[in-house]
Simulated scan of single mutants.
Amino acid sequence: MAKNSTQSALGMNIPAVQYLRLLNARVLVVQALVCIFLYVNCLMIFTFFKKEAFRNNVRYILFAHTLFCDTLFLIISDALLLMSFSGTTVPVGLCMVIYAISGLLNFATPLTLTAMCLERYVAICMPLRHAEISTRRRAIYCIFVIHAVSSIQQFIIFFMVVSSSPLSLYSIYLYCSVENLLVVKWQQNVRSAMSQLYFLAMSVTIAFTYIKIMAAARAASSDNQTSTAKGLRTVLLHAFQMTLGLIMLWLPLIEMAVMEVNLHAFIELRYFDYITFILAPRCLCPLVYGLRDKQFVLVLKYYFLYAFYKKVAPVKKPFKSRI
């Protein structure tokens, strides 16, 4: 009877025991990946705070901000994944808070990548004003603006849920996901429209910076060709990473449609989406940005080997970033 009920619930043709083993194996794979990514991110954040030269450079400040946001987002999303696999439910009010924080962090990373592209545009296309514009204070102001813009959608979703839900809703326990909070079709449409608006604005900004840097590359002298080419590659890599991250904004709509057709396909799709569009973009940032910088990698290698590597050259100001 247990076997038949499990197959009926999941729409699968495998025994319940085999399914549970497969589920546990997938949970272990995810936990291994999350632990690796969290270790690398935390090590890079530690490296950033250990050197004053990094703390005073706008590029590294924004880079550390993406690491911090990605680390918190990975922790929250992994906790939600474990709760989903274990069947744990939470009060609606707590779920709203968790989703608000998760959504803010999710949007903060692509917005920060967009700001990093603008910083490269200023450095290459406006080199005489770069030192004036790209200051530590303005980088901090930029981070505040990023979080303010990221919170707009979360405030709107919070208002939609509160204004259309009875007070009795907050005493209900449910599986914490945005699909369970936005049960009305028009609320899902508003969320989707705002996500597309974010995506359009950031895509236009990155395309603008790429076109401007490409024009500067054609007009640059041979001495500046190398720096400009690196700037182009950096913008392209940021665009690729941002695209992976923003695809997840469309995932709820796709997953909801698949769930109505086949629950087994929905489970498989959600697992694939989590690995590809949530974990992967969060590991690309340190690999794409941090490990391409020779000064940062040199210091990172020192702390990675617990100070046994003695060939680390001191990082002095000023220095030229290889990003």
Score class of each variant (00 low, 15 high):
Tyr198Cys: 00
Tyr175Phe: 03
Ser165Asp: 06
Ala229Thr: 14
Val261Phe: 05
Ser221Gln: 02
Gln241Ser: 15
Thr135Ala: 10
Ala215Asn: 15
Gln153Trp: 07
Glu268Asp: 07
Val184Arg: 02
Ala131Gln: 13
Gln154Gly: 03
Tyr141Asn: 14
Ser192Asp: 05
Asn262Cys: 07
Met160Pro: 07
Gln154Thr: 10
Ser192Glu: 05
Thr209Gly: 00
Ile143Thr: 12
Leu263Asn: 08
Arg129Ser: 14
Met248Trp: 13
Leu269His: 09
Glu255Asn: 07
Met242Ile: 11
Ser163Tyr: 05
Tyr141Pro: 04
Leu253Arg: 02
Leu232Ile: 15
Gln187Asn: 04
Met242Glu: 12
Tyr198Leu: 04
Lys185Asp: 11
Ser164His: 12
Ser203Pro: 03
Thr226Arg: 12
Thr234Leu: 14
Lys230Ile: 06
Ser192Val: 08
Val235Thr: 15
Leu249Ser: 08
Thr228Gly: 01
His264Lys: 02
Asn224Val: 06
Leu244Cys: 15
Thr135Pro: 09
Ala265Gly: 03
Tyr271Gly: 03
Glu255Pro: 00
Ile143Trp: 06
Ile267Val: 12
Ser168Arg: 11
Ala216Asp: 12
Leu237Met: 09
Ala220Thr: 05
Pro252Thr: 05
Ala219Cys: 05
Arg129Asp: 13
Ile206Gly: 04
His264Leu: 01
Met202Lys: 12
Glu255Ile: 08
Val161Ile: 15
Tyr173Leu: 13
Ile140Ser: 01
His264Tyr: 08
Met242Tyr: 02
Leu237Thr: 12
Leu253Ser: 09
Lys185His: 06
Ser195Val: 01
Ala219Gly: 15
Ile140Met: 06
Ala220Leu: 00
Leu251Val: 13
Lys185Trp: 05
Lys212Ala: 10
Ser164Met: 06
Phe240Gly: 15
Ala148Glu: 01
Val258Leu: 09
Gly231Gln: 10
Ile133Asn: 04
Phe144Val: 14
Glu179Thr: 00
Tyr271Phe: 15
Ala148Ile: 06
Pro252Val: 02
Val145Met: 09
Cys142Val: 04
Met256Tyr: 04
Ser195Lys: 02
Thr205Asn: 14
